[in-house]
Design a binder for these strands. Structure first.
Lengths: 221, 221
DNA sequence: CCCTGTACCTACTCACGAGTAGGCTACGGG
DNA sequence: CCCGTAGCCTACTCGTGAGTAGGTACAGGG
């Protein structure tokens, strides 16, 4: 090997923790942009500012790295939503706060959202399992909300059986609307959340008659 | 090369049209199962019962092949929906028939649906453009429906601006519910369509009060 | 029976990217 | 000043899969 070549020798040595964080940040960015398969470890190492063997040393193989990204971003999203919801509130307010927290997160962390929604769900491997598990958790959460709301107001049993499906539809509507929102960033997150809240709570039949849902607490703006 | 080897020599010669159809069928199946990147041309040629150069001769490169799949399956879906909707009906009935046709299609062509929803939307290349264009067409269709419904009943202008977003949410809800349905095939397509119709037309607030939407025409059940 | 074209094949090349071997450099302790 | 170790690198191997070269079998016209 060319021993006499004048290398910069300027590599700053950093503790493992920091490097891992840098690598994960870069990976989320690259996976979000190109997708799992089209993303190369070389590009990730470039963006992270380290060499490829560092990634293997710290985060393992490509699958492990992707899984680590999913895990980190997913728990950030779940934490964000959980932080917005208070268990004491009535169902419609819980749903409202959950939707608001969700859209706030998506607006602030577009890349996180892309890697979760676009990439993870479409990869067949062990990722989608992990990711779909989180998605199922969200659906179960909404389902519980709907069931609680329905039974407390005496909805009949037959209709109650459909709440899981409705929860899946609601989660899908949120995801789709989040994607739409990425193309229309001029709309405030609160407005988008309000649209969806009205659609699912009031229904379009009510909306065209001018019956809208508004949060019980007065909101500024 | 072993010239004396006893090959079957039983390859049935078929006209180009038939082979192209076979190849497209196989491609949809393999793409649906493994995704675009994990699907290999070798496996597609295997499933199709032809050799790889045939695919290249008839359908071109991998991207072209995938695009051809998307195009064929997408137009089948659109035709199916268009065939179910009659322009003369009131908006809610149009939506109802559209939803029914959609879920009927998904139920009958699960692989087509998978390749459209899961694979095409998550690939960054020229596919997603084509596919998203079709999706936008669906959203525009629903949007027109909502606008027509809203203006005919005097909805105010401000709310009308949100119909495009609501249409996106509705399309997403349909997609997500279709995915949920793949895991619960015991539910009839009509029932699933009914759930979604009620959610988006009546809203959950109405549903828990027992206000449900039913088609105007009596349906055998 | 030869000639031409079309359907179809086997068996290859080659690029790309995951993963690795092995070495260099900074720093702290003896 | 020497050594051990941990952070970090360059420069490779090698499998995989897209795409191709070039050939074989069958059909029909002369």
């Amino acid at each position: 090997m060319s021993v006499d070549e004048r290398r910069p020798t300027k590599v700053k040595r950093l503790p493992r923790e920091v490097r891992e964080r840098q690598i994960l940040d870069a990976a989320v960015r690259v996976f979000s942009e190109h997708g799992y398969h089209n993303a190369s470890m070389d590009e990730i190492s470039d963006v992270a500012g380290v060499s490829k063997p560092m990634i293997y040393a710290y985060l393992g193989h490509k699958e492990d790295l992707f899984a680590a990204c999913i895990r980190r971003e997913a728990s950030m999203l779940i934490e964000a939503i959980a932080a917005g919801v208070e268990a004491e509130l009535p169902p419609d307010m819980q749903l409202w706060h959950g939707l608001r927290a969700f859209f706030r997160f998506v607006g602030a962390q577009k890349e996180s959202w892309r890697v979760l929604h676009r990439q993870a769900t479409s990869q067949g491997g062990p990722f989608s399992e992990e990711l779909l598990a989180m998605r199922d958790r969200a659906i179960a959460l909404v389902d519980a909300l709907l069931v609680r709301s329905a039974t407390s107001r005496g909805m009949d049993e037959a209709a109650t059986k459909s709440t899981e499906a409705l929860a899946a539809a609601l989660v899908g509507a949120s995801e789709s609307l989040a994607d739409w929102w990425l193309d229309h960033p001029e709309v405030p997150d609160k407005v988008v959340a309000g649209w969806l809240m009205n659609l699912v709570w009031m229904g379009f039949g009510d909306l065209v008659d001018g019956h809208v849902w508004t949060p019980a607490t007065p909101t500024a703006g």
